[in-house]
Design a binder for these strands. Structure first.
Lengths: 169, 169
DNA sequence: GCTATATTGTAAGTATACTGTCAATTTGGA
DNA sequence: TCCAAATTGACAGTATACTTACAATATAGC
């Protein structure tokens, strides 16, 4: 026997994992921006700063692989960071196509000042849960993001991107 | 004694809940678009269609509250749905400021055709986890989104938005 | 050494997602 | 009733996040 199609309710939206992920991302960005409003820095810009600090002389394409950003999107992000004088772009001697990224003094100062605020924001996002639930959620989310890595259009390629990044500049 | 500041590593990015939420949202959108590519419909457009179907004659402002979207963003979404002839906008008799939203026949057909594909996408997002872990993650995420509702710039206001939406048109 | 292929940065185009502001309209209070 | 305040849809501006395309350059295979 064929059963009738279920009636459409708002549950088709509210209980969908995709809706919850979008909503949580919205909330996370709100909290981040609020905590860091003194610095006019977005979550994406922060991730880029941390990565350039950790890997001085990285180029834009590798950076995009290390933080799982689209290469085109990252172009604009880099532009904004450069116009705020937080990073510098210098042509590579080895490869004329490449531009190497470094933090400026100002960029390093901003990064070190903003890190405690970012930490506060991260804590706030999970605050409403009980400590054990925070741990459980983080564990499941880390696992799911890792297992779904290839499903995203811009998979994380941390090791691949960095294995050729020696002490060269 | 003052302790030295911890050295900055990529963990400042990778283990932050905010990074994991952004990454998971990225993955979720990728999977949605891939499953639904036959229909050229985005997750946001889908949520709008479901809501307009469930609440015919809703206006844009209430719609934004029901799915927790920014009102300005929603304006563009509605425009696109209208230009694809999936919805209609009609002026209200009661309030000259308001435009009421309804699905077209084509919109209703698309919605009913796309729902199984959306369901498949939602399943795929959690597929890599063990069934018990899927349930646990959904439960924690639902709880966290609910408890953090006010932290977002556009809180969900389902009941408020709908309590005045009677049979009027 | 020369050529097919790949990589890099960049640009244009689309779609969220937010910040403001604004005019038209409605509503509530004095 | 009349005026201040709120609401609604629209617009401009910024910032992700993706697509495709392109020119300059580099690399690999022959």
């Amino acid at each position: 026997m064929l059963s009738k199609p279920a009636p459409v309710t708002m549950d088709a939206v509210y209980t969908a994992p995709g809706y919850l992920f979008r909503r949580m991302q919205q909330i996370a960005v709100s909290i981040f921006v609020e905590e860091c409003k003194a610095f006019d820095l977005t979550p994406v810009q922060y991730a880029a700063l941390v990565t350039i600090h950790t890997h001085p002389g990285i180029d834009a394409t590798r950076l995009s692989a290390v933080i799982a950003f689209d290469r085109s999107t990252l172009g604009n992000v880099i532009e904004r960071l450069e116009s705020k004088a937080l990073i510098e772009r210098k042509p590579s001697r080895d490869d004329k196509r490449v531009k190497l990224l470094h933090l400026t003094k100002s960029g390093a100062a901003v990064l070190s000042d903003i890190m405690p605020l970012v930490e506060r924001a991260q804590v706030r996002m999970l605050q409403p849960l009980k400590p054990a639930d925070r741990k459980a959620l983080l564990r499941l989310l880390t696992q799911l993001v890792d297992l779904n890595n290839e499903a995203s259009r811009v998979p994380l390629r941390a090791e691949d991107a960095l294995e050729h990044l020696g002490k060269a500049g």
